[in-house]
Design a protein around this nucleic acid. Structure first.
Lengths: 344, 344
DNA sequence: TTGAAAGCGGTACCAT
DNA sequence: ATGGTACCGCTTTCAA
């Protein structure tokens, strides 16, 4: 059933039917009802492509997920974020087009999206420091919004980020307040912008107390369980092992916990753990939170918000760039405690 | 740059340019080269919507992810599967449209997709037993393919599934061979088809040895870490606790492991654990596999394959329904061992 | 081998 | 308040 057929059935012109369906004021109430009823009865839906061609809008947003050749892992965070964005889209009538793209093909893909005109805007995930994608998109001229930020970048752009630096500063402060002196940081890969900011939060907190960061306690790797497990094992063999671990995700924290327990030590007593956590509900369900968390209430909500920002920008391209910095919420659980007495 | 402009620049008609670009044989080699060069130079990409309108194909596949009102968790499995499907799509020139839909709105969404004509086919995820979506899609008449199967359903349809029943039968057999008599099954929600099949595999293996399944040892819940943790705690307080656990995913297995270790018991010695695992690389990275796994080599590959099947079906709608049953690979790690001697 | 023109299914301007 | 019609950008028949 298309517009032409529907109009014919009603004995009206396509124009009138279209207007009635799209809520134009000049249609009489009587015909509007008639049209609505008929459309409903026949299950009429305007053809997206035809409408898009006529209006110049694709009614779709592209999400480009980088799949690095080095680390092939699919980040579980994306799932939650995307679910949130999806909610916003479906309310606003947008489709979500998802594409995984290798790092080196990004530019090509953006230009293609622009040329094919099948998206009205793009969400950029997992920005690196000085991420070239951002300047590229500015140049290409598609509306876009970044989930995160890219340090050392000039022009303005739309972004939403959690305040990574302050979260790690506060988490470090928290441990310092408990008397911990040697805090091991298990950060993500530092080419990622968020990891860079997190390290600075950690360093600043130490510096504020006159502690010089020990490079041996600052790790930066891909966030796997093994990473956490191995790190603790190695650290325990050193002369002066840390009394606390601060991890960048709950995944390595699981490995940290395992290594600690296997060593016969007690979390929150012998060793403290605190992690930045992005609300992976299946891993920390309810009250059973396995460690302290400095967490945003929900990544999902961030997805919702960023999607809204992008849509707003699409509808008003000349408006000012939209930015939003979410402050992490610091919650405390049973895996963190005062620094144990030590001879060292 | 659109076709009209490109044609004008070349002093050719739109027709010829279009033909040259789409590889029609009647174009002279000379003009074909000229056109290709110009298109390349100006970065011309045909407008998807216009082309789709003219050809009647959307060049997009819809993935519908159910978000149940009960369990809001975003299954991390989807990530890997979808990454695989995405690879196939990008090779074949398809876009992937992702939409999360609440259970009760599924029908509406399918009809909408059909009406709006913005997808050429649909992938159905996480089928329940006798899933109504399948009959619905058959009736609506969009090509579709199911990731999994739905028991007790009549008509033929395209699907790809791992052999859940045989995997659990083999895993149970494995434990039985080691002398375990009381094996606790931590299954997923049994409204899901895969969970139903898995239970049957477990039951059949027991039955083959003349063991009547103990209902108290057969759990079926949402697969969270807490589920595993709590279950072990409860089981340990019973008169005759199990010596082995068989879990339906690595997530509860993490909780199982934690409870066992916290109780001061040794995995693979006091208690054995085996899990069906879908290759979440960040949780079981490399050699450090925390438990035995009865696993498909990769969910990702399944995504690739199912996407190919759907595209094939779209291109040849009158062809026979495509089905594929993948056999799980049984690998063994250090968390499983012989049943301990017991007085009971 | 090339081109003109009629769609594809809508929207939106200009009349009436 | 309603209708006629010219697009939107591409593919595809039909003619030359």
């Amino acid at each position: 059933m298309n517009l032409k057929e529907l109009a014919a059935k009603l004995g009206l012109s396509q124009t009138t039917v279209s207007r009635a369906l799209n809520g134009y004021p000049e249609v009489s109430e009587a015909t509007r009802l008639r049209v609505a009823a008929a459309a409903d009865k026949h299950g009429y839906r305007p053809n997206t492509r035809a409408r898009g061609l006529a209006t110049g809008r694709a009614m779709a947003i592209g999400h480009v997920i980088p799949i690095s050749s080095q680390h092939e892992m699919v980040n579980p965070i994306f799932g939650d974020f995307i679910a949130g964005a999806g909610e916003t889209y479906s309310k606003a009538g947008y489709d979500m087009i998802l594409s995984q793209v290798e790092d080196h093909r990004q530019e090509q893909v953006y230009r293609e999206m622009r040329g094919k005109r099948n998206v009205d805007g793009i969400i950029v995930h997992a920005p690196k420091m000085g991420d070239s994608r951002i300047t590229m998109l500015q140049e290409i001229g598609i509306p876009f919004a970044v989930h995160g930020r890219a340090s050392e970048l000039t022009g303005p752009y739309n972004w939403l980020d959690v305040n990574n630096k302050s979260a790690f500063q506060r988490a470090t402060d928290f441990l310092l307040d408990l008397g911990h002196k040697r805090i091991c940081l298990l950060n993500g890969l530092e080419s990622m912008d968020f990891a860079f900011r997190r390290r600075h939060g950690y360093e600043d907190a130490l510096a504020a107390r006159g502690i010089t960061p020990d490079p041996d306690l600052m790790l930066a790797e891909e966030m796997t369980e093994t990473y956490g497990y191995r790190t603790v094992q190695k650290m325990m063999q050193t002369a002066n092992p840390p009394t606390a671990y601060l991890t960048s995700s709950i995944i390595p924290a699981i490995g940290v916990r395992r290594a600690i327990e296997e060593a016969g030590l007690k979390m929150g007593k012998d060793i403290s753990v605190i992690t930045h956590d992005d609300d992976l509900s299946y891993l920390r369900n309810g009250e059973d939170v396995p460690q302290f968390t400095a967490t945003r209430s929900s990544v999902r909500d961030a997805g919702r918000q960023l999607a809204e920002m992008l849509i707003q920008q699409i509808n008003n391209p000349s408006g000012p760039p939209l930015t939003r910095l979410l402050e992490a919420e610091l919650t405390v659980g049973r895996s963190t405690g005062p620094a144990p007495e030590r001879t060292a």
